[in-house]
Design a protein around this nucleic acid. Structure first.
Length: 480
RNA sequence: CGGGAUGUAGCGCAGUUGGUAGCGCGCUUCGUUCGGGACGAAGAGGUCGAGAGUUCAAAUCUCUCCAUCCCGACCA
């Protein structure tokens, strides 16, 4: 519950120590008994609920409905799509004994739900009239990663996975693009995380997908975080799962499918990007508490009047849609409580004491800059709303500037290597699109292809590694 | 799965040549405080990660486990 600021690690000194420290101290999450798992504590979960609320609203505009499919998947079902099972088998958790008996067909704890959902879709889809199928589920998935990290890579994590079936490929592609746009909005407009969007190389794409679209964000240490992905599955799965339908013309066809997911990992990116030495900084649009009211009590002041004023302010702001909390605790001391809210990243602190009561003003302090302003109480709603907007915008702008400043062109391989051994960040470079070259670059520099930017024009160039002809500039970076 | 490190009060740590456990913070109670980490007084809190061995005696020495964290290969 309590913490010492002097124990708080500096973000500038050691990013990963700082990150872990801040997550624990801000009470966002805590380590759980099983290695690689974590408890998402109420304050952290509130962020996830906010993401759910926003994303559900987006999905509704396209008629995507929520449903729930089982946690257990028969291993035989997973094996149906060859690439898919190969992609996931190293990280599967299997249930081999249940009810005291050894199972003939082990149960897989879902690493993703394509197989179980599509086995069901096959039962439900017969006619073009049954299409499109537009289903999303919010759930947990398990991937037995060797190396884990709070939020960014945990053995079990929460996500949404949307799975759709369409009558035509055009419609499926349109769905994927829509999902990509939703992700851009969530990441950029709400989490204030600027992203590059584009397609994955064939080695980096989702196991079983025709095309994978990604949203890549840059972290302060110059590594890229894949923050959400959308897949055009083509007919790969519908063919093995027999999702067939009769067209208007009376012909049989396989459904055209998409799947797309956003996980709690995005929250990890949020903490990494916006935090500072004093803790996390939450963008106002996603912050569970946008403003905390701190009454400053004085021995000779009238506590009742002060607290009544705080209540009044709370009500005024709440009615205008601001998420407010009054910190009327007697202990610990004011300074310490200031720091608690700073670690938790509450965007605005409102201070009110005898001076403000006297002058009928309030003091507003920004979490991101520390800037302190006094405003007339009458203008509180506009002052607060403007400040919240400013904070939201400036967090995004700051992150975007960092991302842009750390996106570089590499013409030669020496240049490429130099960037990777110094600043890292995104590198734009020609690549021949040969997987062997990609692997060699990764081996030698740690950088992998992140994506081919959307609407990338065909150009004439030579591969930064092998010197053979190349038609596209790809984005490279070391990934999380 | 390789490499490194660490397990002693809630957290951070100390504990010498083996002698039966301590410090800081936090926690509880009372009082005075409160505009950036207040103060006083009185308290509570431990199978020293687990097991085995050596010894009159083990937090300390030996062995075997286990767990966690960090660094690499795999990944949202």
């Amino acid at each position: 519950m309590q913490f010492e600021k002097k124990e708080l690690k500096k973000k500038s000194e050691n990013l990963s120590d700082w990150y872990t420290d801040v997550i624990l101290k801000a009470e966002l999450a805590d380590y759980a008994p099983v290695k690689g798992t974590m408890v998402i504590r109420p304050y952290g979960y509130a962020l996830w609920e906010k993401v759910q609320e926003i994303f559900n609203g987006m999905m509704r505009t396209r008629g995507v409905e929520n449903a729930y499919f089982p946690l257990f998947i028969p291993h035989s079902l997973l094996e149906k799509e060859k690439e898919h099972v190969e992609g996931f088998s190293p990280e599967l958790a299997l249930v081999t004994i249940a009810g005291g008996e050894k199972l003939k067909d082990p149960l897989v704890i879902r690493p993703t739900s394509e197989t179980i959902m599509y086995a069901m879709y096959a039962k439900w889809v017969h006619s073009w009239r049954d299409l499109p199928v537009l289903i999303n589920q919010w759930c947990n998935v398990v991937r037995w990663e060797k190396r884990t990290y709070l939020f960014l890579r945990t053995t079990e994590f929460l996500w949404q996975e949307g799975h759709t079936v369409h009558a035509t490929e055009e419609e499926a592609i349109d769905m994927v693009m829509t999902a990509q746009d939703w992700y851009r909005q969530i990441l950029e407009d709400y989490l204030a995380i600027p992203v590059y969007q584009g397609t994955k190389s064939s080695t980096e794409k989702f196991a079983g997908a025709k095309t994978t679209y990604s949203n890549e964000a840059l972290m302060p240490d110059g590594k890229a975080l894949q923050s959400a992905t959308s897949h055009n599955l083509g007919q790969n799965f519908s063919k093995v799962f027999d999702i067939t339908f009769q067209t208007k013309e009376g012909k049989m066809d396989h459904g055209w499918q998409t799947s797309w997911g956003l996980s709690t990992r995005a929250l990890g990116g949020l903490f990494l990007i916006h935090g500072d030495d004093n803790g996390v900084i939450l963008p106002p649009k996603i912050a569970p508490i946008q403003l905390v009211i701190m009454p400053i009590k004085k021995k000779d002041g009238d506590a009742k009047v002060l607290l009544a004023r705080c209540e009044e302010i709370r009500e005024t702001l709440t009615n205008s849609g601001v998420r407010v909390k009054v910190d009327g605790r007697e202990e610990p001391s004011v300074g310490r409580r200031f720091n608690e809210w700073e670690v938790k990243g509450v965007p605005i602190r409102l201070e009110i004491g005898p001076r403000e009561l006297e002058a009928d003003t309030i003091v507003l302090v920004r979490r991101d800059t520390g800037e302190k302003v006094t405003a007339p109480r009458k203008e509180i709603i506009t002052s607060v709303q403007k400040l919240l907007e400013d904070i939201q915008t400036s967090l995004f702008e700051k992150a975007k500037k960092f991302r842009d400043d750390n996106t570089r062109d590499a013409v030669s391989y020496d240049e490429f290597k130099k960037i990777m051994s110094t600043t890292r960040g995104f590198i734009r470079a020609f690549w021949c699109e040969d997987a062997a070259c990609e692997a060699a670059i990764k081996e030698e520099t740690k950088a992998s292809t992140r994506l081919l930017p959307m609407n990338a024009k065909k150009e004439t160039g030579v591969c930064v590694h092998c010197g053979k002809g190349a038609v596209h500039c790809w984005l490279f970076a070391q990934s999380y």
